[in-house]
Write a protein that binds this DNA or RNA. Structure first.
Lengths: 141, 141
DNA sequence: TAAAATTAAATTGTATACAATTTATTATAA
DNA sequence: TTATAATAAATTGTATACAATTTAATTTTA
């Protein structure tokens, strides 16, 4: 049979599986914070930008309102964010991090180093894969 | 602010984004075959193994019956597979590829090379990332 | 400036992922 | 050999992804 149609030869499947595995690894730390992985990366954006529109948030995460709208509702229910329509343009919804949301950052401070340790990537592997995947993303999005 | 909690510094986010982007790229080819990415990788396993239990299939894809059961129902509805309980152990469900499922392989034959071209990875990048992610998966699953 | 086009979110509908539970069957042990 | 444990799928419930549509607001244009 053609080697090309074998599952084991697909880079796509390796990346897909690695991504799911890493997301599961986050669970160990994020469960304590009552966050999912996606909620965590949204909070990460908000720790860098205390106010951000849904559109800009979506551009940073490459996600649309179909994914973000229900997710932001959950973060709002947890009192980690609030939402407010922009005064000058009512179409725009601004997401605003709350004090509770800001405080969560301290509890999350150790997660990157814990994950790096848990994944077991060498620094070289880490930066090599990141360089290649970031180049790929930049080229196509 | 700590560099470690910046989104742009997370390898995890790069892999997560790359994985989603690649899955979207498959759409262009898989839509013509009326397959989703997950359905495609299940078919890929069946092109290599014409009969396989749900359990073994799950071990190859690192997916459980919660994901596979509804997916296999869809493939059954499309007449690409059939299912049969094992005679010796009624707990086991065998997934059997149909003639229609086998024929689909011809239509899918060009997908790997098309994807490789579309992603724009060099051969070196392709194998480097695959080597590292496969090592990671093997270590943790 | 009023109609048409565009934009930003939200909503709808479909398809994963995955933890947890349930059901049915088989294997094991008291 | 019967109660118990273990196994394999299916089911349930929650949380993404994402295409397509809808709604509301703003811009553009005829």
């Amino acid at each position: 049979m053609e080697e090309e149609l074998k599952l084991e030869n697909q880079l796509c499947f390796s990346i897909y599986t690695a991504s799911r595995l890493i997301t599961r690894m986050y669970g160990k730390y994020l469960d304590k914070l009552d966050l999912t992985y996606l909620q965590y990366i949204v909070m990460m954006v908000l720790w860098e930008n205390e106010i951000i529109s849904v559109k800009t948030l979506g551009e940073k995460l490459y996600l649309d309102s179909g994914t973000l709208s229900p997710l932001l509702k959950k973060l709002e229910n947890k009192k980690l964010i609030s939402k407010k329509r922009n005064d000058n343009d009512e179409r725009i919804v601004e997401v605003i991090i709350s004090e509770k949301g800001k405080n969560l950052k301290n509890l999350a401070a150790d997660i990157p180093e814990n994950l790096f340790r848990d994944t077991g990537f060498s620094a070289e592997e880490y930066f090599k894969v990141k360089e290649i995947t970031d180049g790929f993303i930049k080229k196509h999005l």
